[in-house]
Each structure stands twice: as structure tokens, then as C-alpha cells.
Design a protein around this nucleic acid. Structure first.
Length: 582
DNA sequence: GTAGGGTTAG
């Protein structure tokens, strides 16, 4: 308990203040009395022995400023007692500023001790609920989502009622942080605790489910919200379309189009965001003609393409090798007085880098400074990757060193670019040095780093070492991807260890990762190389039975290895009839 | 007091 005398009114008012207290008939507060008589040592002894509640009551009764009392007391119980007093007098903005201060500065109190303090010093369910509700919101606003979710859970245990005002931001923060399980947990509990969701609640939930790839569940929620009396709005539909667009790579773009039709049929008018989402989706699905069609349709509807529209198209064209067309769009947008931002620059710089035009990339990079657009870490990463893939390692490292001078600091991707470059050039030891350096900068190795290292070890025939890294992935609580497993399977196949490759596939499926086209291609190629064409053929049939669509690479393997060796695959007719995806 | 779109690395 630390109390300072400036909790009380200024010295020159003290006498008047004391007289006022006496005249009001209040019993002379001991603390006030001691302070008035400036008996500091007695005061100290008194404070050390007194019960916090007594002191608090005296302070409140003496008219001391509640806010100051709170700020100078280090006891949770006293603090929350003050909050209750404020809640009774409806001084909510003061409570908010107290809590904000508390959440920012207090790093020692656990959520459970806070709840204990709140519940012991109050009796009113309503007041407690209000304070707890504000506490949850304050945690979220201060980016302490983990404490927010804990408070949400405890509020349930204590039976305090939260409001949609704090549950929505909590849900939104959980979605942004990718805490997928908690998103569904909070929503389910809101319903259970009769916290009525609103349209925004549903939109946040749908957005979360889309990010998790649970598109079917997201669609179910759209039906649920109608039952609650909320009709999906333009944001709901845009979120769903965006969800399907992100799945464009696995052929879900047609579903995005279906949602668009549904949206129009329900009388919701697509806006710029709708069109931009679709354009970006088609671009990432390498379907530039569809993207351009939507671009035209958008203008027909009287909607003006904006920066985001051009950024998507420029990026899409660049990734498809159509850098010249990207440059003409750049010119078009500048004519429309849309000023390229760092995102636009990054897209085009990336286009030059990916298409072996490092001089042009450099020119554009230098132009940014002249145009007053600052490069960011993505610009640097793009340039570093471009230079190292062009085998200009000195330039890549010069870029890396120069970013520090501009106050831009490397992130995990920067190191992944460098590590990947060093591995490609065979400098494994150097690559590991950069793994250490990123640790030194407080950056955590991510799955991409592991995939790079695993790929490099496998290509050197050190599959056993690579498998040890797979175990390390789990220890770091990361989740291996299809790429991780496919790389390892390929590693085993290249060293001719087909048995180990099949065991790795089994492990992959056990982890819930179903073998994909790449997995089959790698395995089929492995069996072909060993001359086991019948087994390869069996795998090919298995792949088709599972509904996987062979791609160009499957076709090449079958043609080169099987057909040319006089082996006619059982599924030949089947394989040649399916549409081969590039 | 909260919801939707654009840029990098495997």
C-alpha cells in the first residue's frame, strides 16, 4: 500500500478542506488527521497496519480524488473498489481511462487475480458485469488478446454478462491473429450466454471462417444470420467472395462467381470492393482474361477502378510474364491521376525481377526515392530475391546491408530469401549462420525457412538430416505443409528409397494432409526411375480414383518414362481425356 | 465501437 499525500487537495487548501470535513459531520479521518498534523512516521505505521478497505473508505469519505487514489494504490482490491464507486455514479469514461492505464502498466496481475478482486469488493451483478465488459474491451484495444480471451472465459465462469460491444472486437482480434479455435469458441459462448450477436458479429465470424478455409461453414452462418433476422449485406457477400477467391488455386473461382449472382439476385449491388476482389482472384488463378473481363464490367457498371484495382492487375500481369502490359496499365493509372504507392511499385519491381529484368527493377527501385515513395521491407525482399536468383549475390547482399541505413529492418522473409539463395549456391554453412543471425534479431524461424533447409538437404541426398528437421518443426509447434512432406518424399525417391517414401506419405496422411497431385507426381516418377512401371501405373490409377486432376508434369512423366519404355498405362485413354491443368 | 479488396520468401 503506497499512498502519497498529493492524493489530497493542494497544501494551501488543506485547512479549508479539513474544516469542511468536520463541518459535514464526518468522523475525523485518521489518515487525513495525521497528514494535517504532518505526523509522517505515525502515518506510515498506521498505513502498514490498516485494512485496505478502511483506508479506502476513509479516502473516499474524505473526498480525495478517486482517480488519483486509484493511480497511487497498488492493491488490486482497493483499485477495483474505487472502480465500483465510479460505476455506481456512472462515471464510465473515468473507468475506461483507469482500466486503460491499468492494462498498459500492470504486467504482474493475472486475469484471475483481477477477477477475484472484482468479485470480492462488489456485490452488484450489473456493476461487475459493466466493469468486466470494459476490461475485456480494454485488453483487446491494448493488443492483449490472450488476456481478452481469458477474461471472456472467466466472465463466463463468474456468470458476468458481457456485451456485443466488447465481444465483437474480441472476435475481430482473434480472427486477425488467426486464433481459429477461439473464434468459434467465442461465438458459441456468446449464443450460450445469450449475448445477442448483430450483423457485424456475423460478418466477423464469416470472415474468420473464410480465412480458415471453412467455406461451407461460412455459408451455413449466412443462413444462420437470416434466422436471427439479419440479411447479409454487401460486406457479407464480399467476404464470402474473397473466401472463394483465395481458394481460386484449387478451382473455386466458379463458386465466387456463383456468390456474385446470388448477391445480385438478393438485390445487393456489387461495389468497388466486390470487383477488386474478383479481379484479384482471377489474377491469382492465372486467369488474366477473366480478370480483364471483370475490369471491363466494373467500368460498365459505372464504378471507377481505383488503386487497388490497378495494383491487382499489375501484379497479376507481372506474375504471368506480361510485364509490358503491366507497364501500360501503370501509365493508364497515372493518366487517371492515381499515384502509384509502395504496393504498386512492389508489384512492378517484382514483375521485373521475376522476368530477368534486374536493370529495369533497379531503375524503378531508384525511381521510388525520387517520387517520394519509400521502399519497405517487401521492396527490399523482392530485390534481394531478384538479385540472388539472377546469381548476383554481391548485389543481393549489398541490398541487405543498405536497408539498415534507411531504417528498414529485415524480417523473416528477408532471411528466407538470403538462406534460400545461399542454399541454392551450395553455401550450407553460411545459410545456417543466417539462421543464427535471425535468432539474434529476435526473429523466429518459420515453416518457409524449414522448407528451404529441408529442400536443400534433400537435394544433397541428406534426407535423414532433413527428417530430423521435420521433427524440429513439431517441437517448434509449427505445422508442416504439403510442400514439407512432398519435398521429403521426393528426397527419398531420388535416393531410390521408395519404401521410405511411401512411409513418409503415410505419415503425411496421418497428419491430415491428403496426398495431392505433386505427391503422386513425385512418387510416380520415383517408381518409374526404378523401372517399376506397374507400381507407377497403380499410383496413377489411385490418383485418378481420388479425383485428382493430372497436370502437365504428370503427363510428361508418363510420356517420357512409361510410354517411351513401351509400357501402356491402363488409364491411358482416361489420362488423355482429362483436361490437363498447366 | 466492431465487418470486406492490393505488394515479398518455400
Amino acid at each position: 500500500m503506497h499512498l502519497k499525500c498529493h492524493v489530497f487537495p493542494a497544501r494551501r487548501n488543506k485547512q479549508a478542506f479539513f474544516r469542511q470535513l468536520c463541518s459535514a459531520g464526518t468522523p475525523i479521518p485518521t489518515i487525513t488527521d495525521l497528514i494535517y498534523r504532518q505526523q509522517w512516521s505515525k502515518l506510515k505505521t498506521f498505513l502498514q497496519n490498516a485494512d485496505p478497505n478502511t483506508i479506502l473508505q476513509e479516502l473516499i469519505a474524505s473526498g480525495a480524488d478517486a482517480e488519483l487514489t486509484f493511480r497511487h494504490s497498488h492493491s488490486l482490491e482497493v483499485s477495483f473498489k474505487v472502480l465500483h464507486t465510479l460505476a455506481y455514479t456512472r462515471k464510465y469514461s473515468k473507468i475506461r481511462s483507469f482500466l486503460d492505464d491499468f492494462v498498459k502498466k500492470d504486467t504482474s496481475s493475472s486475469v484471475s487475480s483481477v477477477f477475484h478482486a472484482i468479485s470480492v469488493c462488489a456485490d452488484s451483478f450489473c456493476v461487475n458485469s459493466i466493469i468486466v465488459d470494459m476490461l475485456v474491451l480494454t485488453y483487446v484495444q491494448n493488443k492483449k488478446t490472450h488476456l481478452g480471451i481469458e477474461a471472456f472465459k472467466r466472465a463466463g465462469d463468474y456468470g458476468f454478462k458481457l456485451s456485443v460491444v466488447s465481444c465483437n472486437p474480441l472476435l475481430s482480434a482473434l480472427v486477425k491473429e488467426g486464433e481459429t479455435e477461439d473464434v468459434e469458441f467465442v461465438y458459441r459462448n456468446m449464443i450460450k450466454r445469450r449475448i445477442e450477436p448483430n450483423l457485424i458479429t456475423f460478418n466477423i465470424l464469416i470472415s474468420g471462417l473464410c480465412k480458415m478455409g471453412k467455406l461451407n461453414k461460412a455459408k451455413d452462418v449466412v443462413e444462420d444470420m437470416k434466422v436471427w433476422g439479419f440479411l447479409p449485406n454487401v460486406i457479407t457477400y464480399n467476404t464470402l467472395i474473397g473466401g472463394y477467391c483465395k481458394m481460386g488455386r484449387i478451382g473455386k473461382m466458379y463458386k465466387a462467381g456463383a456468390i456474385l449472382k446470388e448477391m445480385v439476385a438478393s438485390g445487393i449491388c456489387p461495389d468497388e470492393v466486390t470487383f477488386n476482389t474478383l479481379i484479384d482472384g482471377y489474377c491469382k488463378d492465372d486467369n488474366l482474361s477473366a480478370a480483364m473481363k471483370v475490369f471491363g464490367e466494373m467500368q460498365n457498371q459505372g464504378l471507377k477502378p481505383n488503386l487497388v484495382t490497378y495494383n491487382s492487375l499489375i501484379s497479376g500481369l507481372c506474375m504471368n510474364g506480361k510485364v509490358n502490359e503491366a507497364v501500360s496499365l501503370w501509365d493508364e493509372m497515372t493518366l487517371l491521376c492515381l499515384k502509384p504507392t509502395v504496393v504498386t511499385y512492389n508489384a512492378l519491381v517484382n514483375g521485373f525481377c521475376k522476368n530477368n529484368m534486374m536493370n529495369e527493377a533497379r531503375q524503378l527501385f531508384d525511381d521510388m526515392g525520387k517520387q517520394g515513395v519509400s521502399p519497405n521491407v517487401i521492396t527490399y525482399n523482392t530485390m534481394i530475391d531478384g538479385y540472388s536468383k539472377a546469381k548476383k549475390m554481391e548485389d543481393a547482399f549489398a541490398m541487405y546491408h543498405s536497408m539498415f541505413e534507411r531504417g528498414i529492418f529485415p524480417d523473416v522473409s528477408t532471411y528466407n530469401c538470403l538462406i534460400s539463395a545461399l542454399c541454392r549456391e551450395g553455401y550450407m554453412a553460411e545459410a545456417w549462420k543466417y539462421v543464427d543471425e535471425m535468432h539474434g534479431r529476435g526473429l523466429r524461424v518459420d515453416l518457409v525457412t524449414y522448407n528451404i533447409l529441408i529442400g536443400s538437404l534433400c537435394s544433397k541426398g541428406e534426407v535423414r538430416k532433413a527428417v530430423r528437421l521435420l521433427d524440429e518443426i513439431y517441437r517448434k509447434r509449427l505445422c508442416p505443409s504439403h510442400l514439407t512432406f512432398n519435398t521429403l518424399i521426393e528426397g527419398y525417391c531420388t535416393e531410390g528409397n521408395l519404401k521410405a517414401a511411401m512411409i513418409m506419405r503415410a505419415r503425411m496422411e496421418k497428419e491430415g494432409k491428403r496426398a495431392n497431385v505433386v505427391t503422386y507426381n513425385v512418387l510416380i516418377k520415383g517408381y518409374c526411375k526404378k523401372g517399376k512401371l506397374e507400381d507407377a501405373n497403380e499410383l496413377l490409377n489411385e490418383m485418378l480414383e481420388k479425383g485428382l486432376v493430372p497436370n502437365k508434369i504428370t503427363y510428361e512423366i508418363v510420356k517420357e518414362e512409361m510410354l517411351e519404355k513401351g509400357f501402356i498405362p491402363d488409364i491411358e485413354g482416361h489420362l488423355y481425356n482429362v483436361s490437363v491443368k498447366s
